[in-house]
Design a protein around this nucleic acid. Sequence first.
RNA 1: GGGAGCAUAGCUCAGCUGGUUUAGAGCACCUGCCUUACAAGCAGGGGGUCGGCGGUUCGAAUCCGUCUGCUCCCACCA
Length: 879
Amino acid sequence: MELSAKYNPAEVEDKWYSYWIENRCFHSEPDSREPYTVVIPPPNVTGILHMGHVLNNTLNDVLVRKARMDGKNACWIPGTDHASIATENKVVARLRERGISKEDISREEFLKYAWEWKEEHGGIILQQLRKLGASCDWDRTRFTMEPALSEAVLATFCHFYKKGLIYRGVRMVNWDPVALTAISDDEVIHKDTKSHFYHLKYYVSDGKGNPTDKYLVIATTRPETIMADAAICVNPKDERHHWLRGKKVLIPLIGREIPVIEDDYVEMDFGTGCLKVTPAHDAHDYEIGLRHNLPVLDIIDDHGRLNENAQILVGEDRFEARKKIEKMLEDAGNLVKVEEYVSPVGYSERTDAVIEPKLSAQWFLKMEDLAARALDHVESGRIKFIPDRYRNTYRHWMETVHDWCISRQLWWGQRIPAWYLPDGQVVVEETAEKALEAAQKINPALTAADLRQDEDVLDTWFSSWLWPISVFDPKLPGHPEHKANRDLSYYYPTSDLVTAPDIIFFWVARMIMAGDEFMHDVPFRNVYFTGIVRDKIGRKMSKTLGNSPDPLDLIAKYGADAVRLGMLLCSSAGNDILYDESQVEQGRNFCAKIWNAWRLVSGWSPDAEAAQAESCRVAVKWFDNLLSRTINEVEDHYAKFRISDALMAIYKLFWDDFCSWYLELVKPAPGQRLDGRTFEATVGFFEKLLKLIHPVMPFITEELWQAMEERRPGETIMFQRTPKAGPCNADFLARFDLARQAVINIRALRAQKNIPPKQELELFVEGDALAEVAPALCKLGGVRLSSGKAEGAAVSFLVGTVQMSVPLAGFVNVDEERSKLENDLAYQKKFLAGVRAKLSNEGFVAHAPEAVVAGERKKEADALSRIEALEKALASLNA
RNA sequence: GGGAGCAUAGCUCAGCUGGUUUAGAGCACCUGCCUUACAAGCAGGGGGUCGGCGGUUCGAAUCCGUCUGCUCCCACCA
């Protein structure tokens, strides 16, 4: 097969991905082999590929391809997440473009639009993953809101409800007035925000609702909420305010009377030491309200506007109301002063709206017991985190866990399977039919029309926590008595999970809980946390900053293999990735190197009759040993999830050892032909190297593997076995390294003395340490080997402990050489002194491990022989 | 405020239970080369008192304390 001079990734990548799909190479069915299972962290169905996905899925693919080549039955489940808030926002935005407001249409109409949107844009990201080379089992693609998985979610809700772990409660939630939904604490981002600190006078009431001339001053950032005040609170230890005990004060503008109460919560030295308590609009105030039995008055509606309860400014937006009430308070003489103030304000992660603390009826899942069990799975080591330090983070969260608010005031998602009876009773069942049956047991007269289903949907994570189970057997979640089907029994628990640390609680912890609840087993054995992809100056990649390259552009420009390698080069587990395009360039260069190496080898026409040159025999023996050693290293790295180290070991083996040394050693001179034995060995090495590289760079390795020889239809490198390490002669490798070093020294010598490359040098080596490897050395160094002593002025040097000298009549300046040798000698003596100091240290000899002491003695002996050799060289130079 | 982590070459990081390294790698940089696989390359080279200080030890990049500077998570004083 004729290879083009340049590697063309675009052509090759499309060709082989189609080939893999056609031959169903990614598909897995249970069989007698050991399974290797991973589930994709499902990306948002409306999402598009970003650099974080590239990192995550590249790592996933490397692990999957490696396992496949190790002979395991590898199965990688792809799929998408319905992402209720994000998707609903996008649908709302698109409807708005068409001039349709969500409030103007029915739930059913809205969902119709949403599904349309999903069919149109959903799954784009899965197509993009194919460009990256992801070897997912596409036949098994899942979606968290497909019917079977939705049923699993509803069954799960019923399961926990019937266990008494799900309850409905009034809670202070984080209300997003734009998305019109409650969001979890974890979805609130606190940002320091410039605002004002308003100091307001509250006059003490005379008892009949009239102001006296006495007053107190409170400080607030939210003057628009004073109409909802239920009390003024001071610290009981605060003597400045003891005169207020038992008094009532009047809310400015509306004159409503509220009590002064005392609570330790109030900081005496913050603000004025007086706190207005507004239970409906502040989480802490709500807690104080509970302690003091204060009434709750809600004056803000779902859109963040003041309602009738406010009495004034009704219908105004909360921020408008703030501006207006400032003026009103000033006019009324209640405004003492306004300070500039920076305070942390909660924003919605999704809509960036300022969060409004709001009391609302929500569904909760009790977490205490689930969390305790989930913690144990990690503490006991049944689940391993990589890197391990995330265990601390995990433990901390699991020990301080709050109940999980699982309801969302949205339409896109699984609707809560709770039905209200006319009398307010609630029945929870998986379907409307079952709910009616249950309701009729309470009141036989009821009909379907009497039941009203809860309007809310479930939190997206309430479906994704089932993912490792429901992708295989959606019937199981919620029905622990159900016998797991064949897929679930075979593939569960999954092997590894690759994900970002920011969803350790949202997703990882909850999958562990669901796995424990329904499978009584962990959902995965190892969790590999990737870092966050940042740009090269450390900023998070974001659309607004515009610092995030489009992965597809990168793939088009450099090829998927290059992008994969670029991503992996700089990624160690748990560390943030500082992405720089130069890394992708490095990946592209590596592709070119592999390509060109094969162009060289494939261009040779071997002579089957020719005898193998000694230099070739040595080279083959060397690389065979080196390959074994490197394979062992690589396996060790993979076993410890040190993917970038494994990659680097392979990269250096190919580039530095195979290309720069091995190929140069066996490369026939122009016009010459290589012997058949060496050629076969070289092709064999090349194939093993391709197999080692394949998990990281699937496309170019497939292309070359197919180009090496005629393959059977449907055959692929994907299913070739990872090369096994043979025996490794470490001593031989060490001697070859000496020869290699000698070549480097001789090359340096040529450069230094301006000796033309054509001129052969005569090299004298003492002893026979290099006897076997010398042929290789001679070829690359352009030297002829002699024994005995160099005549006349010569350059002496040491490689390891081997003394070598090259007579260089006409090139050597004796004085220069002498001073160099003297420098070397001085250095060796100093080094020897250091080693001897250590050895004469009684503590060292007594305490250090034997091997270490022996090592030092070896150093001492080596240094001595070097000194001896240098002295000899000096003597002969002087003679 | 609570918790966790990081600090090693210009950059990104290895360095695993203290000793076998006279602190390594990749990239970047500098010098010389278009040598018929590859200039997306080849051959060389420079560059670090392992953040500061103290301690433990025969021995510390490694363990302990402390300081400084960053990062993340949790909670946020109205």
